[in-house]
């Protein structure tokens, strides 16, 4: 009998394999420091991809996330730098803004029966355009709060640094798992991905659920955008170009079906870690062009989609709850 966690095991196994391969080849690769850096370097992507996971499980797609990250960064930098607001005042503002932006797209998708692909593509152009209009230049963020937050963290054995971004990611992860498997809304999201029509006949509030899903994705992209400003101490309108595709790739590699109805948040995190480990491998090697990351991810995607087809083709696709 096939376990419903098959794809998850395959993904996790692949990560362990890649990490081991790197550790054997390069000294210093197999350390807690490199492992911890996988989290902190990719936290913004992982947070965004977790939002994307819900969207894809529900049978949709959100192409606007990369642009929302850029818009969030530019808006935050402007509000802090030019208007002198405190970051703690700015963050709730941009988070709510990201959530509303997503909710708006969700409402369009539901009430006008539009394709998520088109609506979020429009959202992507809109957000990117807005960010560029606000400022074409990169805006530096210079605020004592940023220094405090950036310095905050725990030092684990092996010189491993667990910073704010990693902590935020772990919080988001716990919340997302609770949402997916221990709340009614989570059940509704999987239900929509199984069959929107059946879900409606079973009494699922389709409108609210759809809008909430895209709002979550918008909110988490904005959060990813804030986390990103802590890497660069700036906001720039060209941040995260093509990031939506990385997020989708991470979700798929993490075992979520692109057709919806099945997948796990944890899988997405492992998907992001796999992409991170490949990047780390390439930087350790030093001779390989960084575009090899894309090539390997492309091959992995093909392999995972083929695997999903085989699994669902035999009528035993994954299932929803843990």
């Amino acid at each position: 009998m096939q376990s419903k966690y098959t794809t998850l095991y395959v993904t996790a196994g692949l990560f362990v394999l890649l990490f081991l391969a790197g550790s054997l080849q390069f000294s210093g690769f197999g350390s807690t420091r490199v492992f911890a850096n996988l989290f902190s370097d990719n936290a913004f992507l992982a947070i965004t991809a977790i939002g994307m996971t819900f969207v894809i499980i529900s049978g949709g797609i959100d192409l606007s996330v990369g642009a929302v990250i850029a818009l969030t960064g530019v808006a935050s930098a402007l509000l802090i730098g030019e208007y002198g607001m405190h970051p703690l005042q700015v963050f709730p503002l941009v988070l709510v803004g990201g959530g509303l932006f997503g909710a708006g797209m969700g409402a369009l998708i539901h009430y006008y029966r539009l394709q998520p692909f088109i609506v979020t593509l429009a959202g992507m152009f809109l957000a990117r355009g807005l960010a560029t209009t606000l400022s074409e230049e990169s805006i530096p963020i210079d605020h004592p709060f940023y220094d405090t937050v950036a310095d905050f963290g725990l030092l684990l054995p092996g010189n491993a640094w667990v910073g704010t971004s990693t902590l935020v990611l772990l919080l988001v992860l716990v919340a997302a798992v609770l949402l997916a498997h221990f709340s009614r809304l989570g059940g509704y999201i999987y239900a929509l991905g199984g069959s929107a029509q059946s879900a409606q006949l079973m009494g699922v509030p389709v409108a609210q659920t759809t809008i909430t899903i895209y709002a979550i994705s918008g909110f988490l992209s904005a959060l990813g955008g804030i986390v990103y400003t802590f890497y660069t101490f700036s906001g720039y309108s060209l941040t995260g170009v093509g990031l939506e595709l990385d997020a989708i790739a991470a979700v798929v590699i993490g075992g979520t079906l692109l057709t919806g109805g099945s997948g796990y948040v944890i899988g997405t995190l492992v998907g992001v870690l796999i992409m991170g480990v490949i990047q780390t491998y390439i930087s350790f090697d030093g001779t390989l062009n960084s575009w090899w990351t894309k090539i390997v991810i492309g091959l992995l995607l093909f392999a995972f989609i083929a695997m999903q087809r085989l699994l669902t083709g035999s009528g035993k696709g994954g299932t929803a709850h843990a």
């Binding site: 009614r184 509704y188 199984g194 079973m202 109805g261 299932t319």
Partner: peptide
């Protein structure tokens, strides 16, 4: 109950019975 069962094949049996009133 419709001819084409209007439940959700991707969810567990238990989840189908309790969806929305867990």
């Amino acid at each position: 109950v419709y001819q084409e069962v209007n439940l959700l094949p991707n969810l567990s049996v238990a989840q189908n019975i309790y969806l929305g009133r867990e």
